[in-house]
Design a protein around this nucleic acid. Structure first.
Length: 425
RNA sequence: GGUGAGGUGGCUGAGUGGUCGAAAGCAGCGCUUUGCUAAAGCGCCGUACCCCAAAAGGGUACCGAGGGUUCGAAUCCCUCCCUCACCGCCA
């Protein structure tokens, strides 16, 4: 049965599980008790059901034997038919209980890592480190003003095409978007050793469940219901699910993937402020890093994944800081997360451009992704992912940080070959 | 979109209503023989779940998925998914 937290762990150490879930806030701890109750009932029924099945199997063979000997078997057949009826009712009840247990399990969040800082919301996220300095600007325009003035994007016409919350890059803006994508893909493939993947953008329901977008967050996703297919909200979905239902060998781990895709999000409930410009939109480009690792190596790989994402900002010479998410702010499936926030002169604040999470075996359990460990046992892999990086906010920070007194934008040296010029004017 | 053929264990591939969790071969693991290699012989070799305090042991389910027929389904019927081939259409 697909699950998320290991039901055996829940059975054996319910108090531990509840205590760790409680650090998130919310009521997932209460769901643990519900699961335990359903689990106990389910197992009782399952045992009874198996005994009935065994009996039917035995008697049916006996029927076969008698028939081949031309002996009467009518009373036996009658008896088996009765057992069959019992099995049918019990099987139905067992299936219902199983379904209920699965539903509950799918909606319980992952346990935060024991080292994750305790806190109730984003204000309690500690800053782990920061890099670079805020650029010294005498006069600051924000990205909307800059971008509009220089013709880098056209938000009004984007709205005409698709409604609010969409970007239409134009001219040098479109070129800059493309340059950033290529710059990041080249960096991660050539210098950091990731395998580039160009996946489908539409994915099946199973995949969305695998990476935890469903069932809990369906209202945030664009779905084409008639086909039960969804627009991926992040490349994490198709890429992490790449090896779903597989058993990998230890020597092919870690798997390191990088993918550029557009990302589609309804952002339901976030209409209002904060939506000005290109900082929160329904469709945006992102370069995503994904790793599949062994249990032993996952935190080591997580740190290096974060370092790989940070490298983008360093090479672009953008000031940023690294936050660790506290338990109350941690995403549903994550055990531990670092956020990268780039400095935006125009917003006079930091913008999240990457969220790097270790899901441990939470996603792997859901997608049945395993590997043979050193003893040859099938073990759920650990999955990690992080943006490397998300484009619109990076774009905004980049043009704001590079703005010159004369209204032009100076591009970082490393990006110039990809863009084909040193500045935009 | 149409027509046809298929989906069986890590792989190949038998099996068309009962004793089949599934022949055989290959690959893998162990042992024996051998001066090494090669080869041969023998044995082992799926997953999940349940019972049991645990081990030992026992049991159930799984032959693409889900339903149905039957005393009994890998095997018969229905629906769906997927693969392959040809045709049509199309970036």
């Amino acid at each position: 049965m697909a699950a998320m937290l290991d039901i055996r762990l829940i059975r054996e150490q319910p108090d531990l599980v509840k205590a760790r879930l409680t650090t998130r806030g919310g009521d997932d701890a209460a769901k643990v008790d519900d699961v335990l109750q359903v689990d106990a009932e389910r197992r009782k029924m399952e045992t009874a059901l198996q005994q009935l099945n065994a009996e039917r199997k035995r008697l049916s063979k006996e029927v076969g034997g008698r028939r081949s000997r031309n002996e009467s078997s009518t009373e036996l057949e009658e008896r088996v038919r009765e057992i069959g009826d019992e099995i049918a009712t019990l099987a139905e009840r067992t299936a219902t209980a199983e379904e209920k247990q699965k539903t509950l399990l799918l909606e319980i969040a992952n346990m935060p890592h024991t080292d994750a800082p305790i806190g109730k919301d984003a204000s309690a996220n500690p800053v782990v480190r920061s890099w670079g300095k805020k650029p010294p600007l005498s006069k600051v325009e924000d990205h909307v003003t800059l971008g509009t003035k220089l013709g880098l994007f056209d938000l009004e016409r984007a709205a005409k095409l698709s409604g609010s919350g969409f970007i239409c890059f134009t001219g040098a803006g479109a070129r800059l978007e493309r340059a950033l994508i290529n710059f990041m893909l080249d960096l991660h493939t050539r210098e950091h050793g990731y395998l580039e993947i160009s996946p489908p953008f539409l994915v099946r329901r199973d995949c969305m469940i695998g990476t935890t977008q469903l069932p809990k967050f369906e209202e945030d996703m664009y779905g084409l219901e008639e086909n039960q297919i969804f627009l991926a909200p992040t490349a994490e979905v198709p890429v992490t699910n790449f090896h779903r239902e597989e058993i990998l060998t230890m020597k092919e781990l870690p798997k390191k993937f990088v993918a550029y895709t557009p990302c589609f999000r309804r952002e339901a409930g976030s209409a209002g402020r904060e939506t000005r410009g290109i900082l929160r939109v329904h469709q945006f480009d992102k370069v995503e890093l994904v790793k599949v690792t062994t249990v032993e190596k996952s935190y080591e790989e997580w740190e290096s994944l974060v370092a790989n994402a940070e490298r983008v900002l360093q090479l672009l010479n953008l000031h940023y800081r690294v936050l660790e998410l506290c338990t109350g702010d941690l995403g549903f499936g994550s055990a531990k997360t670092y956020d990268l926030e780039v400095w935006s002169p125009g917003q006079n604040s930091y913008l999240e451009v990457s969220s790097c999470s270790n899901y441990e075996d939470f996603q792997a359990r859901r997608m049945n992704l395993r590997y043979k460990d050193a003893e040859g046992k099938n073990t759920f892999a650990h999955t990690l992912n992080g943006s490397g990086l998300a484009l619109p906010r990076l774009f905004a920070a980049l043009i704001e940080s590079g703005q010159q007194r004369d209204g032009s934008i100076r591009l970082p040296e490393k990006l110039q070959p990809f863009f084909g010029a040193a500045e935009i004017r």
